[in-house]
Structure formats: structure tokens, C-alpha cells
Design a protein around this nucleic acid. Structure first.
Length: 435
RNA sequence: UCCGGAGUAGCUCAAUGGUAGAGCGGGUGGCUGUUAACCACUAGGUUGGGGGUUCAAGUCCCUCCUCCGGAGCCA
């Protein structure tokens, strides 16, 4: 290894390298010139660094590079790290040399305000900007925390397929694909397969993309989104809710500890997240309906909650709230009924605070063969594609439960972003499939 | 699918029916500590498409397209 390679570093490590001669590889984030000094703000994926080029301190050709360089040009910069209160991040680089790797063409995203449509058209470049970078860093940590949580609690990763022959919830619109000469769909949930996983491994989970062909046009919807779905054998609704609150608490506390810089960049009020500690309130659907009645919503009892209703309910609590025991009519066929009231399903939804909507949906599954078969028929679903699913009730059926957590809505809540489309690298919405 | 909103310079937006403009970005020049630097100069337009009314349309009417927000549905 040459001396040059040994000095190779990244911006996030510079605080411990003050006084050292280092080399950084990155891109020009911003340029400012005041004559015989110019400033280059370097971006390397780990942070931003102000680099100072002084005419009297560098060779003439290095100083002359200011006129050649453009925003987002790729450069390798060498210099001495020093403390500097005036610079962003508290350190700066006194430049001794610059190697130009590529001079970028005029960059479309100027350091000024842009509209969302324009930025989304340039999503592949927008990812480089501070806020988008921070949001996706949080997304990464949410996913890491999720895997850590389930991996260290005895769950086995059992990936569900993306192509499926059956519609989990029957009623919702699925993306149909030509699967050779047969119809297939893109999955809208990996849950059914996790039930097989839980009966094989005790506790299993999957994490992958799911697809909904609904023509939703709201800040809470994507046609392609990522869901993490755990499923537990020998688990009833109460235990299911305990898993959900442990998991959500874990993710939020993990991000508070590991995403301090990003949450500060996003100007997130973290005091709201610090309150996300167990136990979370658990209320019934009927109690939630009472809250809405008291607050004057025009909500119709027996129906599902709309976005506004969810916000009204979540405003009552300072942490996520779990709503359980729903009218069976509005829930999926596979949900087990409440032994105390056959009209109610043992389902649970978790609403995030601050109006970020439903982040978790789940419940206890019907484990009786005859009842499940009847439900499939009552819902006018074809029995054939569900035969394997029914088998799970023929060979060692047990009470089991699970849930799914929407990654994008969770990231949106933790980051405090208004639009869910900023929480996924390349969002897919009804009118956007590019870039 | 329904309701509402918007399409004008690369971007963000102005412009009573009467000569299409500004800021930012780009280019040129100036400045030894800038923070969205500043100052001067400069280039940049089929006003989303089509049709109509009018002496005259970015502006009024019809139609189509695109996008945005919300509803429904959902995570």
C-alpha cells in the first residue's frame, strides 16, 4: 500500500484526523470564489466538507481549476485537515492538490427551490441532496433494525414469493402478469406464506416488495412498497400486539441512537419519538369509533377509518395506538373471529402518531379447517389456489398470528416527511414508473 | 373513477385583452474567509397541443394531453 492510499479517508472520519494530510474522493457540491481564495464544498456520500484553495498556497494549475469545475464534477482532493468553526461540520480541508476525474455537464438541480415533479423526474440525481440522503440513511437503519430485531428474537427469514396465483385479500386490485401461458399476480402480501413458515420454524418473517394496483393518489400510497411480515405459531392476538409494540419501539429507539445526524438534518422533533416506549395504548374498534363520535367526525360505524379519522384518533395519544377487534365484514377472510363476539375479527391496526397513518396491520389467523374453507367460499374465492393454505389447518394446526409493517410509512413517520414517495429510492406511483 | 388546482426561459414564478419579464442557474469579468456569498455585464422563449372569438389572445371560449393535491381503497 502506498502512502497515498494510507491517507485515503472519508469525510465522516475527519474529526479524528485533524492535522493530518488526507485524500478524499468525491463530487463538487458547491463552488464559491472570492478572487484569490475559492471554496469547494465536497460531497463524498458520508458528509460534506469545505475545502479551501488559496492562490498563494497551491500550484497555479490547481488554483486555475476553479474555472473548469462545475457542480457535481468528480474530484480527488488532497490537503490538510484543520478545525474551523466557520465551516459546516467544524472541520475543513486546506487544499494542496486536486485531481479532476470528470467535469460534469450543467447540473439540473440548482441550489434553490424546485417543484416536486421536477425533482422526481431527476430522482436519480436528487438522491445526492442533503435531505434525500438523510431520509434514505434512516430507511437503511429502519431496515437494519428490523432484521436485527427479528434475527435476535428467534425468527427465521423465510422469503415469500413475489409471483402468486392467489389474491390474499381478494377484493383489492392486483397487478396481473403474463406468466408464460398462465395468469399470475404480483404479491400484495407475503403473509400466507409466512403462515407456512411459522408452522415450520415456530417464528418466521419475510421482507420484500409488495404491489397494489389501486389508483390511489395520496401522500400515503405507492403501487410498490416494502413490507416486513413476521408470523408466530402458538400466538394469540394479545401476544401479537406485544410483538408489534416491542418491534416498533425497537426501531424508533434504534434510529434515535443511530440517526442523530440525519434526524437533525431533517429538523425532526425527536422529543416526539422519545415518547415511543411500551406499553402502547390498545383500544377496540368500538372505542376508536367513540373517539370519532366525540370529536364530531362524520365517520359511519361499521366502516373502515379514512385518513382524516386516523389522524383524529392518533391525536389522542402520544405514542402509536393499536386498534383491535374490528367488524369482521371489513377485514380479510383469514382473520379469526372473536370467540366472545362472532361479528368481530381478531385483527389489529397500529396508527403512528402525528397523523402518519396506519403503519401496521395484522391479527390472529383462522386456524380451523372447516371455518376457513367456508370463509373462502363465502368470499367467492376459488378454492384450488388456496389448497396448500388450507393444508396448514389439516396438519398440526395451531393458534397463530402475525402482522405486516409498511417500511415507507414508518420511515416517513420517523423522518417527519409529508410525502411517502421520498422514503423510497425510486417511488412507483400510479403516474410514475420512471426513473 | 370522482372533486379541486397547475402548465410562460434550464429552474421558481410575474405579466387590466394591447412591445413576453424578474430572481436563481449558465457564460464573461472583479474581489484573500465565503456560508443559497456579493457586484457588473451577457446569452437564453413555438407561453403544454389543437381549434375558436377578436383589429389584437400567455390572458376569453371549446377540446385534448401532462402533472400536483385530496376522496375512495389500503400498509
Amino acid at each position: 500500500m502506498t502512502e497515498q492510499n494510507m491517507a485515503q479517508t472519508t469525510i465522516d472520519k475527519l474529526k479524528s484526523q485533524i492535522g493530518s494530510q488526507v485524500t478524499l474522493r468525491g463530487w463538487v457540491y458547491k463552488l464559491r470564489s472570492i478572487g484569490k481564495i475559492w471554496f469547494l464544498v465536497l460531497r463524498d456520500g458520508t458528509g460534506l466538507l469545505q475545502c479551501v484553495v488559496v492562490k498563494a498556497e497551491v500550484p497555479e494549475d490547481v488554483f486555475a481549476m476553479e474555472s473548469r469545475l462545475t457542480q457535481e464534477s468528480s474530484v480527488i482532493v488532497t490537503g490538510t485537515v484543520r478545525e474551523e468553526k466557520r465551516a459546516v461540520g467544524g472541520v475543513e480541508l486546506g487544499v494542496s492538490g486536486i485531481e479532476v476525474v470528470h467535469v460534469a455537464e450543467e447540473y439540473p438541480i440548482a441550489p434553490k427551490e424546485h417543484g416536486t415533479a421536477f425533482l422526481m423526474d431527476h430522482r436519480h440525481l436528487w438522491l445526492r441532496s442533503r435531505l434525500q440522503h438523510a431520509i434514505l440513511k434512516v430507511r437503511h437503519q429502519v431496515i437494519k433494525a428490523s432484521r436485527d430485531f427479528f434475527d435476535s428474537n428467534g425468527f427465521t427469514l423465510v422469503d415469500s414469493p413475489i409471483f402468486t396465483a392467489n389474491a390474499v385479500e381478494g377484493t383489492t386490485n392486483l397487478f396481473k402478469v403474463d406468466y408464460f401461458d398462465q395468469n399470475a399476480y404480483l404479491t400484495q402480501s407475503g403473509q400466507l406464506y409466512q403462515e407456512a413458515g411459522a408452522l415450520a420454524f415456530g417464528k418466521s418473517y419475510c421482507f420484500g416488495p409488495t404491489f397494489r394496483a389501486e389508483k390511489s393518489k395520496t401522500r400515503r400510497h405507492l403501487t410498490e412498497f416494502w413490507m416486513i411480515e413476521p408470523e408466530m405459531a402458538y400466538c394469540d392476538l394479545d401476544e401479537d400486539m406485544s410483538w408489534a409494540e416491542r418491534y416498533v419501539e425497537y426501531i424508533v429507539q434504534w434510529c434515535l441512537e443511530h440517526c442523530k445526524t440525519e434526524l437533525a438534518t431533517l429538523e425532526r422533533d425527536t422529543s416526539k419519538l422519545e415518547k415511543v416506549k411500551r406499553p402502547f395504548p390498545r383500544i377496540t374498534y368500538a372505542e376508536a369509533a367513540e373517539i370519532l363520535a366525540r370529536k364530531g367526525s362524520d365517520f359511519k360505524p361499521g366502516s373502515d377509518f379514512g385518513g382524516t379519522d386516523e389522524t383524529l384518533i392518533s391525536e389522542e395519544f402520544d405514542r402509536p395506538v393499536m386498534i383491535h377487534r374490528w367488524p369482521a365484514d371489513i377485514k380479510a377472510f383469514y382473520m379469526k373471529r372473536d370467540p366472545a363476539n362472532n361479528d368481530l375479527a381478531l385483527g389489529v391496526d397500529m396508527l403512528a402518531p402525528e397523523g402518519h397513518g396506519e403503519i401496521v396491520g395484522g391479527g390472529q389467523r383462522e386456524d380451523d379447517y372447516d371455518i376457513l374453507l367456508k370463509r373462502i367460499r363465502d368470499n367467492d374465492l376459488p378454492v384450488k389456489p388456496f389448497e396448500w393454505y388450507l393444508d396448514l389447518r389439516k396438519y398440526g394446526s395451531v393458534p397463530h398470528s402475525g402482522f405486516g409493517l409498511g417500511i415507507e410509512r414508518t420511515v416517513g413517520w420517523i423522518c417527519g416527511t409529508k410525502h411517502i414517495r421520498e422514503t423510497i429510492p425510486f417511488p412507483r406511483t400510479i403516474y410514475r414508473i420512471e426513473p
